[in-house]
Design a binder for these strands. Structure first.
Lengths: 171, 171
DNA sequence: ATAAACTCTATTAAAACGATAGAGTTTATG
DNA sequence: CATAAACTCTATCGTTTTAATAGAGTTTAT
């Protein structure tokens, strides 16, 4: 699974709309300016998000874009699948399951791919715009979950300070 | 993280060499034939794997390729990082950590990306060629782990039968 | 009527991807 | 020592994808 520049732009724009949820429609130009995104390109992205019924537009003067649902009901996986396709690192989940069934020789490999996809899906389907948008209205389900996990692991540090865990070799 | 066709070829070739570990050098032509890969393309891939010291070549007549280490000591992550780059869905781990530190506005998003990368790394760094190569010499650390996990979850089915868990919407 | 917006289709430049070609070098072996 | 079997290396190529821009069209507030 790869998140393209376009996918990042989409996520940024959606975070911005999440921060301004319930404040009426926001103009493309304002989103582009606030987030530092190319305006014309963003236009296409928002159109796609609109066709997927994730955002809605208000046309004409005083128009703009807004979320169709509250930020807490929009999963990151929806946006990523729309813009960048399947979460699996190769093919998609269904295809992988078929290969696992039929290609005995490579079953093990495809099962690993599917495991990776499931791990990504678990995270991205359980994280919503409300969880990451920041600004007023933060502290949602996800941030609570992450903090708990760190505490359970013996983490003591406040949020972003990346502690202890393996961290030797990198990507 | 995206695994390209080239990356898949590399993994297949390595699985093949793992199955033939300790049987001397295997010719490119034989790997390509057995795995159904384009020979000339595979040539380049093996060269890259050799430069990364994962395989070694024997030159001249009767030459070929073989693993430099036992299959149980070659992580899938090594091969994937070499051919397809970082495991993170966007950028690489170090870059993400920097962004989490410096870009307050998007910290939450980048943290999610890093979580996804960590989940993928956990799987791909703990799975070796021995775990997936199949043929004689299978049943290694990983397959034991997976079975345990399934059993713990109440899974009763033999290996590949994908049970119960969420599986509704797909990639 | 007009300007402010979104809508839609087309185009483009650059990069990535998948693959092939061919000349060069090394080595076993007869 | 000639030769064929291999690996080595650099170049090229066609296609697709990516990131972005352009511009004409449509809708709506005022």
């Amino acid at each position: 699974m790869k998140i393209s520049q376009k996918g990042l732009y989409a996520l940024q724009a959606m975070m911005m709309l999440a921060r301004h949820y319930n404040q009426g429609a926001i103009r493309i130009r304002d989103i582009a300016y606030e987030e530092g995104l190319p305006e014309k390109f963003l236009e296409l992205i928002l159109l796609e998000l609109k066709n997927a019924r994730i955002v809605e537009s208000v046309r004409g003067a005083k128009g703009g874009y807004q979320l169709r649902r509250p930020p807490s009901e929009i999963q990151l996986s929806e946006i990523i699948r729309l813009i960048d396709g399947p979460l699996a690192p190769f093919g998609d989940a269904e295809q992988l399951r078929t290969l696992i069934d039929r290609d005995a020789e490579h079953r093990g490999l495809y099962q690993v791919f599917l495991d990776v996809r499931d791990a990504a899906a678990k995270i991205l389907e359980h994280t919503t715009l409300a969880d990451i948008a920041g600004g007023p209205g933060a502290e949602s389900s996800r941030s609570r979950k992450r903090r708990k996990k760190k505490e359970a692991e013996g983490g003591v540090l406040p949020m972003v300070v990346h502690g202890n865990v393996p961290r030797g070799k990198d990507d």
